[in-house]
């Protein structure tokens, strides 16, 4: 059974920083939204929580590409995560949650699980 989801507005284009990330608070917990204007698609959303430290910092990592794959490097211990799949390039047992993200006019929307409360986020 597919969990129900809903598109929520999380911020506006004004809030984004080109080639970098920002963090938003959602009902699924902290999410990092990245804006890479030189490629398509240009928007990515992944969990803001760094799985190696448990700290909410990923939006503050450096973005780039490794072998063509768009990535963010954790600012703490520098592991790279694919912005598309959430997979950690250094440890394929670790994957970030990813969220579909859309630009609608000047609003940024994320597709989030309807029932996801904080509890589910913390358990993930």
């Amino acid at each position: 059974m597919k969990a129900q989801t809903r598109w929520d507005v999380v911020c506006t284009v004004e809030d984004l920083v080109p080639d970098s990330g920002i963090a938003v608070w959602t009902k699924a917990g902290p999410v990092a939204v990245f804006y890479l204007p030189h490629r398509l698609p240009a928007l990515f959303a992944v969990s803001h929580t760094d799985p190696f430290s448990g700290s909410n910092v990923l939006a503050r990592g450096i973005t780039g590409d490794v072998g063509g794959e768009p990535v963010v490097a954790s600012p703490l211990y520098k592991q790279h995560f694919s912005l598309r799949s959430g997979l950690c390039l250094e440890d394929d047992g670790v994957r970030l949650k990813t969220y579909p993200v859309l630009l609608d006019g000047d609003r940024i929307l994320l597709e989030l699980p309807v029932s996801a409360g904080l509890a589910e986020f913390q358990a993930a």
Partner: peptide, 22 residues
């Protein structure tokens, strides 16, 4: 400066050293 922001390690971006808890 806008062009340089995304280049910096987090410590430079936020002009402070990041601790293990963020």
């Amino acid at each position: 400066a806008t062009d340089h922001v995304p280049l910096q390690d987090t410590n430079d971006t936020f002009m402070a050293n990041m601790q293990k808890n963020g």
